[in-house]
Simulated assay, not measured.
Amino acid sequence: MAIDVGTKAPEIELKNQHGELVKLSDFRGEKNVVLLFYPFAFTGVCTGELCALRDELPAFVNDDVQLLAVSNDSPFSLRVFSEQEGLSYPLLSDFWPHGEASRAYGVFDEEKGCAVRATFIIDKEGVVRWTVVNAIPDARDLNDYVKALGEL
């Protein structure tokens, strides 16, 4: 079960596609965070969602907001994926310990071995203010993120 709105966001420390450690707490007091979990790189719906975010990037990476996309892929796969698709925002690897961050947010599908499609908007104080959790095949609507960010 995904964590609830109003919950303090669990800390995560994951490597990005360049092997750099990124912590959720790095943004506390500075930026709201759009924390997006997706099943796997190089798959149809995931690629579509992440490229849509790329195309609307100023709404999700700016002085007030940071986008962090998390999957259970290795950092090496994420680097190739980001280069292939032109994704300049952080792609974080929840590869090892496998699914640890996804489990902390209650969005790891044990049967499939990956995260479901879930997004958490976390305010500058580190509190979850909005969530959406979709089944693996169901894409999310970016307009919902924009609306939720506007209400912070």
Rank of each mutant, 00 (worst) to 15 (best):
Y145N: 04
P10M: 05
P137E: 05
N16K: 12
R140C: 07
T131N: 11
L50E: 09
K8G: 03
R28L: 08
G29K: 12
E30D: 13
G106E: 04
E83L: 12
T131K: 14
V146I: 10
L24P: 06
D73A: 13
F120D: 02
E85A: 09
A115Q: 01
F27M: 02
F81L: 13
P39M: 02
Q17G: 08
S88Y: 00
A104I: 13
G99M: 01
Q66F: 03
N72D: 06
K15N: 14
E100A: 15
C51W: 06
A135F: 01
F95E: 05
G99K: 04
D55Y: 04
Y89A: 05
V116Q: 00
D109V: 15
A139T: 01
G44F: 15
E151F: 02
A148Y: 00
E13K: 14
A139L: 04
D141I: 05
L35E: 06
V133D: 00
I121Y: 06
V45W: 04
P97H: 08
E151C: 05
D94C: 06
L67I: 07
P97A: 12
E151W: 02
T119K: 02
V116K: 04
Y145S: 03
E56Y: 00
R117D: 10
Q84L: 14
I122F: 12
N32M: 02
F95L: 00
V107M: 01
T43P: 01
P10N: 05
Q84N: 08
Q66A: 09
I136K: 04
S74W: 01
G19D: 13
L57A: 13
L68N: 06
L21I: 13
E13Q: 10
L67F: 05
G6C: 01
Y89M: 08
K31I: 01
F95T: 07
C114T: 15
E110F: 13
H18C: 00
E125T: 15
E100H: 12
H18L: 07
L87A: 07
S88G: 15
R117M: 07
Q17H: 08
L50N: 12
I122W: 04
K147V: 14
D26S: 11
G113E: 07
N62Y: 07
A69L: 11
E30R: 12
K23L: 03
V133F: 03
K147W: 00
A52R: 02
L67E: 04
C46W: 05
L67P: 10
T47K: 08
E20H: 12
L78F: 01
K8R: 09
L35I: 11
V127H: 11
F81P: 04
F42R: 04
G150P: 09
G113Q: 09
